[in-house]
Write a protein that binds this DNA or RNA. Structure first.
Length: 254
DNA sequence: AATAGAACCAACCGCGATGAT
DNA sequence: GATCATCGCGGTTGGTTCTAT
């Protein structure tokens, strides 16, 4: 059984939106709010797929959309976030108020990716490259519970499990001995990562064997590479918290 | 001025995740 | 637990605009 199409395609408009369609969509959402995208076209009187309406609203019509050129500051932030998160455009866009994932994706593909490639070529072939494997692909997960920072026990360097203890918590401790492995991070509980929100990672959670609790690796030369679920945690950090990590970039990303 | 190629960007498509039943 | 509906994401496409020749 194949996937059901998102909507009946017959008789629907495709391609560029007209000013009239924009106005209808805008008016409808102003009155009824976002959501129920599938029903929206019919109720609003638009000959468009619900998905198309959603995209048009999110990428173009939303009142908080910032139009115009990407500033230098924004560009730098995009570059840093891309280093950290990879092609997770929605997450990157979440850190750039008024910018959409589509806009950032386009900007990256048309401007920054080429520039980045150019920079790579300028680097000596003998220079060790870590950036590629530092970009970790993860799946976003929703936060289902809050974890109090106090439940962390820095002395024993273990995570004190919350009442709803998960197997992944103990897995963290066991795998501290294997700080090169990203495998255990697959089972890392995102909720526990929230505990790190306002804590500088490198010092407090660095372990004796060179890794830290996030599964990140600290090499002898001080180079710092981060683990899969650190990126998941980043999804829940506010900009302030994130920037503090970004400011450490030179120490532990390069 | 005409044209070809490059660059840009809005929109589409397919898939995975999640929630409801 | 299975199935279906819905939403959101990232990759890709295609039309438009810009630039070089």
């Amino acid at each position: 059984m194949g996937r059901r199409p998102c909507c009946a395609k017959e008789g629907l408009n495709k391609g560029a939106w007209t000013a009239n369609e924009d106005q209808i969509l805008k008016n409808y959402i102003t009155i009824h709010g976002e959501g129920k995208w599938r029903d929206l076209p019919q109720k609003a009187g638009l000959k468009r797929c619900g998905k198309s309406c959603r995209l048009r609203w999110l990428n173009y019509l939303r009142p908080d959309i910032k139009r115009g050129n990407i500033s230098i500051e924004e560009e730098e932030l995009i570059i840093r976030l891309h280093k950290l998160l990879g092609n997770r455009w929605s997450l990157i866009a979440g850190r750039l108020p008024g910018r959409t994932d589509n806009e950032i994706k386009n900007y990256w593909n048309t401007n920054l990716s080429k520039r980045m490639q150019g920079q790579k070529r300028n680097i000596s072939p003998n220079t060790p490259q870590v950036s590629s494997h530092n970009v970790i692909r993860t799946k976003a997960v929703k936060c289902t519970k809050a974890v109090n920072v106090d439940t962390l026990d820095p002395k024993s360097e273990t995570l004190v499990n919350s009442p709803s203890e998960t197997p992944s918590s103990s897995a963290i401790n066991e795998d501290n001995t294997n700080n090169n492995s990203m495998d255990f991070l697959v089972d890392f509980d995102i909720d526990e990562l929230l505990a790190f929100e306002y804590n500088p990672i490198p010092e407090l959670y660095r372990t004796q064997n060179g890794g830290d609790k996030m599964g990140n690796n600290v090499a002898d030369n001080g180079e710092y590479s981060h683990g899969t679920d650190f990126c998941q945690a980043c999804e829940h950090l506010d900009l302030r918290g994130l920037e503090s990590y970004l400011n450490l970039e030179d120490e532990w990303i390069n």
